[in-house]
Amino acid sequence: MAGESEQSLLDQHKEKHFTAGEIVRDIIIGVSDGLTVPFALAAGLSGANASSSIILTAGIAEVAAGAISMGLGGYLAAKSEADHYMRELKREEEEIISVPDTEAAEIAEILSEYGIQPHEYSPVVNALRKNRQAWLDFMMKFELGLEKPDPRRALQSAFTIAIAYILGGFVPLVPYMLIPIARQAVVASVVVTILALLIFGFAKGYFTGNRPFRSAFETALIGAVASAAAFGLAKAVQG
């Protein structure tokens, strides 16, 4: 009856936690780089008096290369995380078998850090020792602070970052598709991209729990500084 009552309370209380943190992180990585890098490249080439067609060609090539590179980086990072988890899982499993008393003492130490007294955590320790899988899961989470990664995480991360990079990267290039004169296109590109950076920064701040308006300003500032630096360097080299 107690278990049913607790489940009923849990069903009634649905906590509204945001659980898509990894996906949002990948989108932020992809879009932020996608908006900034091609933007700076286009601005730099505009400063060198390149034509819109050349800027567009170089920009598309950069977006393609950047998406592949960023996606591969996301894949390798997620794969490395999964490999690390499996190595630690195997090591922890071996320790539970070879030195169970030591591992049990570690459970007691972990629980004591939460203010649980010996007479309170002893039944918990004994219960975990009878269930090896639960014991292993407990040690992975509370001793090592590792969560079991989703086996699809590496591919999802690569795909999400790459698509986000492409979507972000085409924003500063659209004006060059529509305006043949580069000096006019760069102005439109700056306006469109700064606006996109402001919107993206606001959304990033909103979803990550930071101050949205400050996030919007900081994101737009970083993009503006990067493009201004590229434009200025191109002008300086040309001069």
Score class of each variant (00 low, 15 high):
T160L: 09
V63D: 00
A65P: 04
G239P: 06
E94Y: 14
V191R: 05
S46M: 08
A230C: 09
P123T: 04
F18A: 05
L72P: 08
L9Q: 09
I96G: 02
G44M: 09
A196M: 04
F159T: 11
E218Q: 14
K16Y: 11
E113P: 06
E103Q: 11
F170I: 15
A58E: 02
I179M: 03
I68L: 12
L41R: 03
E143C: 07
Y75G: 03
S69R: 13
T219I: 10
K90A: 14
Y75C: 05
E106R: 08
D150H: 07
Q184T: 13
M139D: 04
P38G: 05
F170P: 01
V125W: 05
K79H: 13
I166G: 01
L136C: 03
F18D: 00
I54V: 15
E106W: 06
G115S: 07
F159E: 00
M70N: 02
A61G: 14
S69M: 08
G232S: 13
A154D: 00
F231Q: 01
L233M: 11
I23Y: 12
L128D: 01
M139L: 15
K141G: 08
D11R: 13
T160A: 08
A226F: 12
I116K: 00
Y75T: 05
G232I: 13
R214W: 14
E81S: 13
N210H: 13
A67C: 10
F142V: 03
A67N: 01
Q184G: 13
I222R: 04
H17A: 11
F142W: 07
L233K: 10
L155N: 04
G205P: 12
A164I: 10
F142H: 13
S53W: 15
Y121P: 04
R183C: 07
S157W: 08
T160E: 00
S80H: 07
F231T: 10
N126I: 14
L195K: 02
N131P: 07
P123E: 05
